[in-house]
Design a protein around this nucleic acid. Structure first.
Lengths: 207, 207
DNA sequence: CCTACCGATCGGTAGG
DNA sequence: CCTACCGATCGGTAGG
């Protein structure tokens, strides 16, 4: 066992010092795969080629790392809403942009997305409120797009915007469970399949 | 602090001895709310009004409890598939039964459902394969119902059964995230809303 | 980023 | 189901 040990991570054999960013990235990877409570500071140190105790020169504690990883996730998802709203166009276009943007975030930042969705409940009480609020806002963007779509006549009036938003986000959030980078479909293809289902369901009697 | 402490669980003040069943039920509750790695044997003992070490007269270890809780979950979900297939009728009816049955399991057994979906990845390696296989079979029942529905002409031919099965199960599985027993909709109402969305999506141009 | 620790808590056992 | 433990591991700190 030593610096050339084959089981060591790539980071462990590279000589350059780690940054706070590196630590957060490694944390997002381990929190995503083993869970927050299933990851020890020593595990995290191993991943970075250092001791668990050395991490405390980069971060104040384990909880801070969880907050940081999840904050990253929220920034990505908030960015999608901002872009979709800035793009203008019809409510239908906006909803389609929300969907494809969400897929792109998950595909591009799978570890942060997984941690955000699976580990937020372990956030320190002081930070949990902020995250829940953000998630509510995110859902509200979907509700609004659906409401506007009904007003514009492109969506049927006999759906409930709140419930429909939950269903659409259910499909989107589940992507963190089944997405595999080795799969044959890219983000655009996945987004298109989701959109077809969201628009028409399984019956698709006509368009 | 003592046997009349208001913070103690009801179980703690009842004098009758606990059964293995009681232990598994308490485990499903704590695993669901705090996660497997976030629950200690002492936490579990508190919940049942006994010491953590006393649990070992009921179960061999913490892992065994996780296996047991998840096995319960699989029995419930497998039961839905068996009933839907036994009921006969059209593929559309079968799929509708799968959906409403799944909702009923989640609403009726929320802790087992949550543990099954969130904590299965922490199963001992020896049991994980069995559970993954079961989940594949479950998904296969959906795929088959969709395929049959296309053959029977009630579902459009331009959907992919595998992908559509994932989308439908995404909506169903997300229920463990947003369902609250205090909500105003019962299992039937939730199942009906889901079914409407699955059938027609947001456009619902005609029926 | 390491050395050398700390008190607390973990899953679990022996013996009753 | 309790008493009385065990070794291992946890998050974290002081000092360099």
């Amino acid at each position: 066992m030593g610096p050339t040990d084959a089981s060591a991570s790539v980071a462990a054999v590279s000589g350059s010092p780690r940054t706070r960013e590196d630590v957060v990235t490694a944390a997002s990877k381990l929190f995503a795969s083993r869970g927050f409570h299933g990851t020890s500071m020593r595990d995290l140190g191993d991943e970075l080629g250092m001791l668990g105790s050395s991490l405390y020169s980069h971060v104040r504690g384990k909880n801070e790392l969880l907050v940081e990883v999840i904050a990253r996730g929220t920034r990505f998802f908030n960015g999608v809403v901002a872009e979709a709203e800035a793009a203008g166009g019809s409510a239908k276009d906006r909803l389609r942009r929300l969907v494809s943007g969400h897929v792109q975030v998950v595909v591009g930042h799978i570890d942060e997305s997984r941690t955000f969705l699976f580990e937020s409940r372990f956030l320190p009480a002081a930070d949990r409120g902020r995250i829940i609020e953000m998630r509510d806002d995110y859902e509200a963007a979907y509700r609004q797009a659906i409401r506007d779509g009904i007003d514009e006549g492109s969506f049927t009036a006999d759906i409930d915007p709140a419930t429909t938003a939950i269903f659409i986000l259910s499909i989107l959030n589940a992507l963190i469970r089944w997405y595999r980078p080795s799969g044959d479909r890219d983000a655009d293809a996945i987004g298109a399949e989701m959109w077809a289902f969201i628009e028409n369901g399984v019956v698709r009697s006509e368009r």
